[in-house]
């Protein structure tokens, strides 16, 4: 899932300072699961912002909604009128949701309430860890199901660097060394031979280094004819 964190409130206050009608929009997907932009977080943010305004004698109007998935236009359209009636959209979604709204309503100011941090997994309640960088060329079948691109601070592909200490990463001793973990996993599976071969330089073109990525599935795309039909229904 996409893991995000709420921006410091001071930063949020500053972004919306000059705008009167504020619509806060959360998302029930990833950011709700990581406790950053779901229903509760939207309500708490609005309360806090209202309290601040009350204390400082400032007037701003707040409204709040939570969409099923903010990154999909169909769901955003549900609050079309609310968006059109506001001066600023404070998105409590990952940047994808915020950008979906920004692209759909180019005349509207959209500000991010969250910092989108990573592709991660909930390790335990209240803790998420990064496990993928979206490099576009997955190799975890050769590394015991552990991604060294995301989980090694140096994205090393040929084994641990010289800073691996007691199985921990030199950058942060609270974090396991990915290559230590890979070695342990492959040892368990009796497949340490996978580590012998020299892995030549990685081709980064399928990653962001190859430019912004757009994926097209021709078989899933609607034909012009289908699009016309769909528009007629709506």
């Amino acid at each position: 899932m996409i893991v995000a964190e709420r921006k410091p409130l001071g930063e949020i206050v500053e972004m919306i300072a000059q705008l009167h009608k504020v619509t806060v929009i959360g998302c029930r997907s990833c950011v709700a699961i990581c406790l950053a932009g779901g229903e509760k977080e939207v309500k708490m943010l609005i309360s806090a912002l209202k309290l601040k305004n009350r204390k400082e004698g400032r007037k701003q109007e707040f409204d709040g909604f939570v969409l099923e998935r903010q990154c999909e236009k169909e769901w955003v359209k549900e609050v079309d009128d609310k968006i059109l009636a506001s001066d600023v959209i404070l998105s409590m979604s990952c940047s994808l949701g915020a950008q979906t709204i920004a692209d759909m309503y180019p005349e509207k100011v959209v500000v991010p309430g969250l910092n989108t941090a990573m592709f991660g997994v909930p390790e335990e309640q209240g803790m998420w860890s990064e496990k993928c960088l979206g490099c576009g060329d997955c190799i975890i079948h050769t590394t015991g199901g552990i991604c060294p691109i995301a989980r090694c601070a140096k994205s090393m592909l040929n084994g641990p660097c010289g800073g691996s200490s007691d199985g921990h990463c030199e950058v942060n001793l609270d974090i396991e060394c990915a290559w230590y973990a890979i070695h342990e996993r492959l040892k368990l599976q009796g497949r340490l031979d996978l580590l012998e071969a020299v892995r030549p330089p990685k081709d980064w073109t399928p990653s962001h280094s190859g430019g912004r990525r757009i994926i097209v599935r021709e078989d899933a795309k609607l034909t012009q004819h289908q699009k016309r039909g769909k528009e007629a229904v709506i």
Partner: peptide, 14 residues
């Protein structure tokens, strides 16, 4: 002297 110790000779081999 870095972990995993048993990988260190293999790493030199690489």
């Amino acid at each position: 002297f870095a972990t995993p110790f048993e990988f260190r000779a293999m790493r030199l081999a690489k």
